[in-house]
Design a protein around this nucleic acid. Structure first.
Lengths: 239, 239
DNA sequence: CGACGGACGATTGTCAACAATTTTTAAAAA
DNA sequence: TTTTTAAAAATTGTTGACAATCGTCCGTCG
């Protein structure tokens, strides 16, 4: 069920890419940690070539910093980065919505419903990766509604970073809660995240462009701004 | 004079990247032409490794199509692509302007003036590459006024494609002229392009955000739409 | 005691050869 | 003639070795 026929097994480059992305997004490789090609290569049982390819790609995505002749480090994602990523992703999706007139295909709407369910399940199981995947599935329907290939590509380039941001978001939430403001209702992910997606789905179903744009703003961009402002007030304890 | 100190000579990867970009944007490699790694490598006197790196990067930029195990071809850029690239670049710059409140630093304004001069000179000398470079310089000031690193990075990723689009634009202009509508005043590059930039510079200098946004729309995005509509009405003669 | 400079080690950049895959070619079968 | 099949050629994917570069350590000089 589901997946397109996968005729060729993934290359070693893709394997390394997947591995490194996962390590970074899951936080197993802390920010600013040095990444040595030969180590990764040995660890995966491949040579350095494919690992190099993967690192170059990750540099484009912004998950690692690449300094010529000096090597790679896991990118240190500041709250400002989080803000920018949220803002950009949200802006791109707004562009898509406008281009598509706020209308989403029946199939797209159906997948968005599925995604909402998956988010609900992921939250219950406390599985961050499940939530991230479902969140991506949800928003993918939005970005694709604009029917602009380049727009989708850009959005996809931003996706891995967005995944990494969930870590920052989690920390911020905990911090905020500790600061005493128990407004879990406005919590971006494990609180009202579900509600935000539900509301957004509803406006999309109605085809109400303006309402969808507002809902997107509320869900996405303001979360970024909140994180950013919070970080200015109180440095995040970077590991 | 001018350039930042270039302490390390460019790597072979960068050399190959520059070479291939130039070839493609100048049209010396026609769309859909197959690119064979070993040929390029031999042609540049390097091995395949650096050429591979360059091709991967070009694939991200959208200048080549990369099919695993099957190799590369020069990307075939349709009028719709042109439309999307213009639209996206314009949209990103509008985001930057909004973020920066429509205000641009004195140094930025100065560089924009320089760029306008360079465009004027480039048009006179009929040097497309000079116009492209100056155009990039001009718009870079705008995208940087938003002070969002990720936004700038995305814009930079789009730049090479934008360069390639000048070819499409040129063809479209010729086609349009041949169709009898002698409205060279609305000509995007070798006609009123200079004027559009001048007007945009003027609104930026005043710090008039709304006017700048409108000017940007007129200059950038509508050019894309015009190209797209024109192409629907009359297939562009793809070489 | 601190600044300068050269050897050393670690790591990336590049290469040429090999393996795996795809495309082409040509022959055989229908 | 057209289709099918298999061998051959061309091309990409991968590898291990070598070269170039960078950071560090340690001895020398001021």
């Amino acid at each position: 069920m589901g997946n397109e026929a996968q005729r060729t097994r993934e290359s070693f480059s893709e394997k390394a890419l997947r591995y490194l992305r996962e390590q970074i997004i899951n936080g197993q490789m802390p920010p600013q940690e040095k990444i040595v090609e030969s180590e990764i290569a040995h660890c995966l049982g491949v040579s350095r070539g494919p690992v190099r390819d993967a690192l170059k790609q990750l540099a484009v995505e912004g998950l690692v910093d690449y300094q010529p002749n000096r090597g790679c480090t896991v990118a240190l994602l500041s709250p400002k980065d989080a803000y920018e990523v949220f803002y950009l992703r949200g802006s791109l999706e707004k562009l898509a919505l406008e281009k598509g007139g706020g209308r989403i295909s029946d199939e797209g709407l159906f997948r968005m419903e599925e995604a909402v369910e998956e988010i609900r399940a992921g939250v219950e199981k406390k599985s961050t990766s499940a939530v991230v995947a479902a969140d991506e599935k949800f928003h993918r329907q939005i970005i694709e509604s604009g029917r602009m290939d380049r727009l989708v590509k850009m959005w996809e380039l931003l996706s891995p970073l967005n995944g990494a941001m969930f870590l920052v978001v989690k920390k911020t939430n905990e911090l905020e809660r500790r600061l005493g403001q128990e407004r879990t209702l406005d919590d971006p992910f494990h609180g009202d995240d579900l509600g935000a997606h539900t509301r957004l789905l509803e406006t999309c179903r109605r085809g109400d462009l303006q309402a969808s744009l507002r809902a997107l703003d509320a869900h996405y961009i303001r979360t970024g701004e909140r994180i950013y402002r919070l970080s200015l007030r109180d440095e995040l304890p970077e590991k």
